[in-house]
Design a protein around this nucleic acid. Structure first.
Lengths: 130, 130
DNA sequence: TATCAGTTTAGAATGATTCTAAAGTGTTGA
DNA sequence: TCAACACTTTAGAATCATTCTAAACTGATA
């Protein structure tokens, strides 16, 4: 709990009740893929009632501070990933199925980066099913 | 024009006025990345007034019939790509910048596909800037 | 050319996300 | 310890891409 406060502070986030609860859940040591909706459901299940607006704010704040990765996989919801290491994903739209690929993937044969641009990150999505 | 009609028919799409216009624009030989909005703007510029609903319907129909690729890159709009070959993309969210990578990319080191799943496609997105 | 299934369309509805502005709360300095 | 204020939270409204509805229209067929 004080760990969490310190953790938030060290990421320039004021440790409010809500952020402490959310961070406590998200960063419990197990990698998680969540959406605003799924996070809200999970917190409610644990008797922590936090408004959706705050959940959106918090996910955004955590993302902006590098505590979460944002995944754009579907047009109807945004996923966040608590694993912020460089990694990739298996994804099944049909089954809402999302698994990290932590193995070291190599992408070979990339052409020259467009003029005046820098590569920020390379994302590999392995789409399953159809 | 009759080419386009045949083209639509051969893809089990009834060649309506609107579809002919849209297909004529989309499949003119040059690869295009479009959104419903950008397509609407482009058609309006060419004096072809087609309702947004029809534009959405048509993009969806073309996609369902394999004439377009769908690209989920941003949470606030869906891109379609007239290049349906296996290929990848450079993408800059900041600049709404999207370029095909047609070179042969190889992704090495993928782990085993999850049980009972089949790989549908592998998508590589090279994110530029930040 | 009549008929009808497939299409188009205006306008309403949807739903995730963002915005607003008012009330609440960490933090800081004295 | 506490006043003061900047930062947060929140309910509810607003936004906006996309989908839905159901009525009018049209390509295909016989």
């Amino acid at each position: 709990m004080n760990d969490i406060k310190q953790f938030l502070r060290s990421n320039s986030l004021r440790p409010t009740k809500q952020r402490i609860v959310i961070a406590g859940y998200l960063f419990d040591g197990t990698d998680k893929h969540i959406t605003a909706e799924s996070l809200s459901t999970e917190l409610t299940k644990r008797k922590h009632i936090i408004s959706l607006a705050t959940i959106y704010n918090t996910l955004h704040d955590f993302y902006e501070n590098g505590l979460l990765k944002k995944l754009i996989l579907s047009s109807d919801r945004v996923y966040f990933d608590t694993n912020t290491d460089d990694h990739h994903h298996f994804y099944s739209e049909k089954d809402q199925f999302l698994i990290d690929i932590n193995k070291n993937i190599k992408v070979n044969g990339l052409p020259k980066t467009p003029k005046n641009k820098k590569i920020n990150k390379i994302e590999v999505i392995v789409h399953l099913d159809k």
